[in-house]
Design a protein around this nucleic acid. Structure first.
Lengths: 148, 148
DNA sequence: ACAGATGGTCAAGTTGCTTGACTAAGTCTG
DNA sequence: CAGACTTAGTCAAGCAACTTGACCATCTGT
């Protein structure tokens, strides 16, 4: 594969990812969830379904645990998550989604489905399935980080 | 397409994009270009091949022109770009890549090719070509923004 | 020709992250 | 089972990339 092809692939991928993030975010806001940023969505994916500690969250987001803790503060203030005592480790706390947090997560899922719909119209259902399968095969197992 | 499938597709796409951005960045740093951030790369893609104004750059990156101007300051200080008088508009300035800027761009292209290589090994050359074609079809024409 | 739009910068404020220092609780060793 | 080390979490201060607001110089349209 030539460099120029790799560039075209990379540029297209990043453009699509940026667009997708923005559309999901807009969709969530349009459904009435204000004061949430895209980074919160990535936190939610780690907190669902059973919660996680601040340290887990920090690793998932690729930030320091102080930053993760501040993010949790903000989400608590806005009512999306709760800090609970951790069963079996008195130092730790289990951060869990509130009902509002779950509602927001469902809104994000709907927004994602909506954002993907044009792709189905463009490529057809089968091709999108192929795309998903390909991306799943090359997706890293590690933390999901901001793209930049 | 079900919501859960759209979620899986979105998550995989964003994970791959995050990974890709990080690998390209690491590759550029490994080639000796320090003090560059991923956002600079997106600026470079707009500045090549003929330069652009600060306002163009701001629109491309999806930030204010003040932010774009500050970014240009930084790139000038580090030797990657130059501000030139704009031919035909005395208000504007044409921001162009220096030789160092071009070298950095080539390094990013090599790093991108390197980051994509494992995908070829995983999926095969043909499948990657399909992936590229699909992404190019759904890629937006608009500005390339940070994913979040 | 002059009113308004546009390109760019300066200055100040906000925000989301970092590094550093610390406490409380768990774990491992002898 | 005591003492040293590690780990979870927070507090505090600083930094860096952005924002908003104000401003001047230049271009454009009637």
């Amino acid at each position: 594969m030539q460099n120029s092809e790799a560039i075209a692939l990379s540029a297209a991928l990043l453009a699509v990812a940026g667009e997708l993030t923005q559309r999901i975010h807009e969709g969530v806001v349009a459904r009435g969830f204000e004061g949430v940023r895209p980074a919160h969505g990535f936190a939610f994916t780690r907190l669902a379904p059973d919660g996680a500690t601040v340290t887990d969250l920090a690793a998932h987001l690729g930030v320091t645990k102080q930053a993760a803790s501040q993010l949790v503060d903000e989400l608590v203030r806005k009512g999306y998550v709760e800090r609970r005592p951790h069963p079996g480790d008195a130092r730790a706390r289990l951060i869990v989604l509130t009902e509002l947090g779950w509602a927001c997560t469902r809104a994000a899922e709907e927004a994602a489905a909506e954002a993907v719909r044009p792709w189905v119209e463009l490529l057809g259902e089968g091709e999108v399935r192929v795309l998903r399968a390909q991306l799943l095969r090359i997706a890293p197992y590690g933390p999901i980080r901001p793209a930049w």
